[in-house]
Design a protein around this nucleic acid. Structure first.
Lengths: 205, 205
DNA sequence: TGGATGTTTGACCATATGGTCAGGATAACG
DNA sequence: CGTTATCCTGACCATATGGTCAAACATCCA
């Protein structure tokens, strides 16, 4: 962005604030989160927090912008030159599931936004996400046309992967409540196996 | 519940309030919704609304309780005696997708709750949903054992159906933004076709 | 070491919000 | 038609919340 001659303290505190904000925003949504909550979670006083970020809105925007690249990286990585398209798509799905496991807060942050109509995310959706998905859908269509994978609607395939993987982060409480005890502790091994099976059957040419 | 000698006005206003509340809660979450918003949407003054429901909390609880049966009806209907298990599961999935189309507000209401850790829904999840899912998972396991459908983890199969169908309601904005114009107007025909294809391939014995 | 720069805080403010209340308006009904 | 039960409202209250500010306090470095 710009030259940021960050102090040690600045670096430490902004990081703490963003991490705390991720916690709070992801579990209460923008409206449900309070500046006091975030400040407390970051170990700062409210005025102190507002010394680093001028408003709740700014914290939120900074978070979203900072996480967007990470969030879209797996889809970005989908490679049109992959020798084995099925494996390439499986890799994408695996990475997405991995992100649900390792970054559930991020998943819920975005889920909250989109659920509520994406009021703070419209530009991102139409400006970044759509072109990216268009491009990758094109690639998938090419693989279908070449007979490398079974005929499938590329956009809905992507939606499927999103929903199947993000479900384990966004609806974590439900998943763990419903699952039998022994699996509830860690649903991901079975989820991973299930996901792979689905996709293999769906896409086998 | 109890004898409710509802007046005409009572009936009309409580209905209006619950409908308005569904609108507001589903698009802003519990915390994000305000009593004033709901009152305005229902065409009542705030004190008037609070004459019918003693608090925001009560409105919310009433809504959830009133919608729960409807929401779980499709899963309830999954019949162990069905002659064609694959078709029975497909029917379930179709009904769920239909609900995403016809009742997106309800879907988002529940999604909001679960996303935020189900603070007002814990009893429902462990008290009603879990036993129901346990029962239906049993049925599915039976079908697998009998070779009627392909081997599949019953709980994760149910999660798959939930996520694949609810995605179109909960992430509606994203779906419509990403999809090409001609499909964005109504994503459901293609979604339905896609869903059916996935499930057939996944479950074919 | 002393000033310049950066950091932190308690006190404070305006507004939003959930909720109350006394009394007035309206409908129901004998 | 008059009384009773229901319905509705403006004014009000307590609290929560986003945000400000002047002043105290640290830190850094010449």
């Amino acid at each position: 962005m710009e030259g940021k001659p960050q102090t040690r303290i600045q670096h430490k505190n902004t990081a703490a604030i963003l991490d705390a904000a991720l916690d709070v925003f992801s579990s209460h949504g923008f409206r449900g989160a309070t500046v006091d909550q975030i400040a407390k979670a970051a170990g700062l006083s409210k005025p102190n927090l507002l010394y680093y970020f001028s408003s709740k809105e700014v914290i939120h925007r900074t978070l979203l912008e900072g996480l967007l690249d990470t969030w879209l990286a797996p889809l970005h990585a989908l490679d049109s030159q992959a020798e084995d398209p099925l494996e390439e798509i499986l890799d994408y799905a695996r990475r997405k599931l991995e992100m649900s496991r390792e970054m559930p807060r991020e998943s819920r942050l975005f889920a909250n936004e989109i659920l509520q109509g994406a009021p703070r995310l419209e530009e991102v959706l139409s400006g970044h996400l759509k072109p990216l998905v268009d491009e990758k859908a094109q690639i998938i269509s090419g693989w279908v046309a070449a007979g490398k994978i079974a005929p499938v609607h590329p956009y809905h395939l992507i939606f499927s992967i999103w929903s199947l993987t993000q479900h384990y982060a966004d609806f974590d409480i439900q998943v763990r409540t419903v699952l039998p005890e022994n699996e509830a502790a860690d649903p991901f091994p079975e989820a991973s196996h299930h996901l792979e099976t689905i996709l293999r059957k769906m896409l086998a040419p």
